[in-house]
């Protein structure tokens, strides 16, 4: 059964590593159901996984226990937001600092920017961090891989 656009889905996840797989798997399943091709659906999966992993790994605030994830389904694209209410960070500083890729945060954002069509990261100590990602659907779904 097709999902008619526009439509908005919101969910809250515990901010724990074991829920990242659920989040990314759900995102991939939704993209496939929306007739995104297999490759783009995998890109959505990895990008959501990275955004959630950032929220899990790089938020030190113990009061921040949830990840808020939303999907906005439009006729030709999917908007995904992954947000937390942690202490935030300076996105410019992270993205310009690639000398220590073992830290992961810079690599994760690098991957998201490479795979998604639009990416906006907002972060502050008052509101936490929100990664907004957009993926446009190609006209003809492929047969998978």
């Amino acid at each position: 059964m097709k999902i008619a656009a526009p439509c908005r889905i919101e969910t809250r996840l515990p901010r724990r590593p074991e829920f990242v797989r659920f989040a990314r798997s759900a995102a991939k399943a939704l993209a496939l159901q929306l007739d995104f091709n297999y490759g783009d659906s995998c890109d959505v999966e990895l990008s959501v996984g990275e955004a959630c992993a950032n929220a899990v790994e790089h938020v030190c605030d113990v009061e921040c226990t949830e990840i808020l994830m939303s999907f906005v389904i439009e006729s030709n694209h999917l908007v995904i937001e992954v947000c937390d209410h942690g202490q935030g960070f300076d996105p410019a500083k992270v993205e310009s600092s690639q000398e220590d890729p073992a830290r992961g945060l810079g690599i994760g954002l690098q991957i998201i920017r490479a795979l998604m069509d639009e990416v906006k990261i907002s972060s502050s100590c008052q509101t936490g961090t929100c990664v907004r990602m957009v993926k446009y659907r190609e006209s003809e779904p492929d047969a998978g891989e």
Binding site: E45, L46, G49, E50, A53, E57, P101, A102, R103, G104, I107, G108, I111
Partner: peptide
């Protein structure tokens, strides 16, 4: 079949 930046980070750390 799937690896994210956490896996890449581990490879970098071991490499170092």
């Amino acid at each position: 079949e799937y690896m994210d930046s956490a896996g890449l980070g581990v490879l970098v750390a071991i490499h170092k």
